[in-house]
Amino acid sequence: MTAHPEAPETATATYVFAVSRRLDPAVLAGLTGLAAGFPVRGLAFGSLTAVVQHVPADEFTQEAWQERLSDRAELERCARAHHEVVTRAANCGPTVPLALATLYRGDDRARQALAEDTPRFAATLDRVEGHAEWGVKVWVPAAAPQRPETAAAPSLRGGGGAGRAYLERKRGLRQAREHHHERALRIAEDVDAALRRLATAARRLRPHTPEMTGEKNRVQVLNAAYLVTAVREGDLRDAAETWRRRTGVDVEVSGPWVPYSFVGEG
């Protein structure tokens, strides 16, 4: 999420949300976008159309964006507004969302820069047309915590037998944790392999840590995105449910989304 390297110098800058092949201006009506008072609109370049908005230049400099990055509430507001515009544009057809904070000094500069990237935009629009992104997360129960009475070290007066028993218990707990972890990874791989067979493309994303999710009783072992045609969406949901029943783990499916995860591919 970095601003365009050319900082705007005029009163307004041109913020670019996305690029589409087919865009009905009516779908953008009523959107606030990133700056109230400036309409969200289409900007044609060649056979494609960018979804843009004028924004106050002094409020959208690189320095201003750095401040937003440190303000979680403001950054979330911008991200939600950006996503709302992209989603609305995608209702008209395949859409390439651009990164948050894609800015140019004006419409002419935006049109020129985007036109130079027309081949990539066209190829991406061809690839995602008729598809949507679906997210799948697999969660497994966290390993059972070690009980204090099990973990307690034996008294020295207990003799060698007690010491050996303690070590055996420790070894058993370690092996159980390792088995639990290995099984979780196998399930993640199996689920991913099954869903990839239904998708045109797939991406493995970094699983969210417990610190990010706030989850204490389960661990995320798969965080993936799948590019799926409309006719295979039901198959993907059914496959996820089958794996949930077969393994007993939580398989969360979300979508359909604009294919954010697949617009940067060659």
Rank of each mutant, 00 (worst) to 15 (best):
E182R: 14
G130Q: 07
L125P: 06
Y104A: 03
A152M: 10
G158W: 09
R105G: 12
G135N: 14
G161S: 12
P97H: 03
A99W: 04
Q112W: 00
R186G: 13
L167W: 07
R111A: 09
Q175C: 04
A115M: 00
G130N: 09
R177Y: 15
A184W: 06
R174F: 14
H180E: 12
V128K: 03
P154R: 09
D192M: 05
Q146S: 12
E129I: 08
A188F: 00
L156H: 04
A99D: 11
D117F: 01
H131M: 07
D190V: 03
A176S: 12
A152L: 08
G93R: 05
A101K: 00
N91C: 11
V138P: 04
E133T: 02
E149N: 09
G163K: 15
A115S: 05
S155E: 13
L185E: 08
E149V: 08
R177W: 15
A162P: 02
R174C: 01
T118A: 14
A90R: 06
L167A: 12
A176I: 05
L173V: 07
P145C: 05
R120F: 08
Q112H: 03
Y104L: 03
D108N: 03
H180F: 02
R174I: 08
I187L: 15
D192R: 07
G160L: 14
R157S: 10
V136G: 02
E116F: 05
D192A: 07
A115W: 01
R127Q: 08
G106V: 00
G159I: 02
A162H: 11
R174N: 13
K170A: 14
P97K: 03
G159C: 03
P141S: 11
A151I: 02
Q175Y: 15
G160Q: 09
Y104K: 00
P145N: 09
L98D: 02
R177M: 12
R177C: 10
W134T: 00
W139A: 11
G93W: 09
N91K: 15
A188I: 10
R186Y: 09
E149R: 07
G135P: 08
E116D: 05
D192K: 12
Q146N: 01
E133M: 08
G172I: 01
L156W: 11
L103V: 13
E178Y: 14
L98G: 01
E129Q: 15
T124Q: 08
R105I: 04
G93V: 07
E182C: 10
R147L: 09
D192F: 12
E189W: 00
A188M: 06
A99F: 05
A176P: 06
E149D: 10
H131K: 09
R105Y: 02
A132L: 13
G106N: 13
P148H: 13
G158V: 06
P148T: 13
P141Y: 07
G158L: 07
A142Q: 09
R127S: 09
T102A: 01
R147K: 14
V140G: 06
A101S: 01
V128L: 03
R177T: 11
A101Y: 10
